[in-house]
Amino acid sequence: MSAPLILLPGDEVPSDHLPSNNSNPLKLGPGLRLLSQPSSKPDATSHVLTATQAGLVTTDAKRNTVSILSFPNRRYIPTVNDLVIAQIHHSSIDYFHCMVTPHTAHALLGQLSFEGATKKTRPMLKQGELVYARVLSVGVGAGAEVELTCVNPATGKSEPGGLGPLVGGMVFEVSTGMAARLIRASSSSAEQGDVIDGLAVLSELGKKLESLGGFEIAVGRNGKVWVDCSNAGDSAIKATIAIGRCLQTTDDKRLNPVDQKKLVTRILREMKLA
């Protein structure tokens, strides 16, 4: 097994740190890009993987993927295919102009970039409303506009992850590193109670709140987590706040799985939910 490797932007990923699953094509996760360079053979090129952000090289042999695990408090930089939670700032004839991160240019979301949307049925989103979207393109060069979409370009469906407007619920801020871990944990097919990427908090909350109807969660790589507990009836607000507190405390204090489970138990008792 290769030793852990930390790369800086522009560093090349050594071949011995790539997964060796030849049955599936290699997939690139966040923080990497494929570059072509001249080969020693005439009229030929070779390909190298380079880092676009600083972080730890991580691989998934089963899915044959390689990515960069960024440092927890890294500033979010939009990357194609990232899932983000964006807030509508204003709209124009063809686009919604969305805030993805503070103090940066607005991202563009086409008014027809929703499942089944037409000029008559498109969502009429107002300032302050939230959407769960995927980064479609980031452009090239300084000042390039980021474009978002709420559909899978290949299928026209709001997949994966239930893309589209987020109605109700509450949004909590976490670090970008925590957001990446939550996405991996929430998208994993592991059994309930398993620890994914050092996180037990989601599965523990799901187990403890199952009797209240569970909860919905959407995680953006830009460090935003949307939580909805509308099925919990009169306890919906308390359950939503409890989940947000658990996620933020786990992030701030970098709790291990055992302490995460203790935290969930304590907070649910404080909120009189257990």
Score class of each variant (00 low, 15 high):
185 A>Q: 06
265 T>W: 04
7 L>D: 03
200 A>S: 15
3 A>I: 11
37 Q>A: 15
240 T>P: 00
102 P>Q: 10
34 L>I: 05
195 V>L: 03
54 A>V: 11
158 S>P: 09
83 L>W: 05
256 N>F: 10
155 T>F: 05
83 L>T: 09
169 G>C: 08
60 D>M: 11
197 D>W: 06
201 V>H: 01
79 T>W: 03
124 M>R: 14
216 E>F: 13
51 A>T: 01
264 V>S: 02
190 A>G: 09
50 T>N: 03
254 R>S: 13
24 N>E: 08
242 A>W: 03
229 C>G: 01
138 V>M: 00
189 S>W: 08
188 S>E: 05
257 P>H: 02
71 F>Y: 11
154 A>N: 09
36 S>H: 13
93 I>M: 08
185 A>Y: 07
99 M>V: 11
130 L>G: 03
199 L>H: 04
98 C>D: 00
196 I>F: 02
102 P>G: 08
112 L>I: 06
210 E>F: 12
208 K>H: 07
108 L>M: 11
111 Q>G: 04
221 R>V: 00
265 T>L: 11
188 S>A: 15
270 E>P: 01
237 I>S: 12
165 P>A: 13
45 T>P: 01
272 K>D: 01
3 A>W: 09
20 S>D: 12
179 A>C: 10
267 I>L: 15
193 G>L: 02
24 N>I: 10
122 R>K: 10
146 V>A: 01
154 A>T: 10
161 G>Q: 12
176 T>C: 11
242 A>L: 06
125 L>G: 02
174 V>L: 09
42 P>G: 06
149 T>V: 07
241 I>H: 08
60 D>R: 06
259 D>F: 13
112 L>H: 12
140 V>E: 06
179 A>D: 05
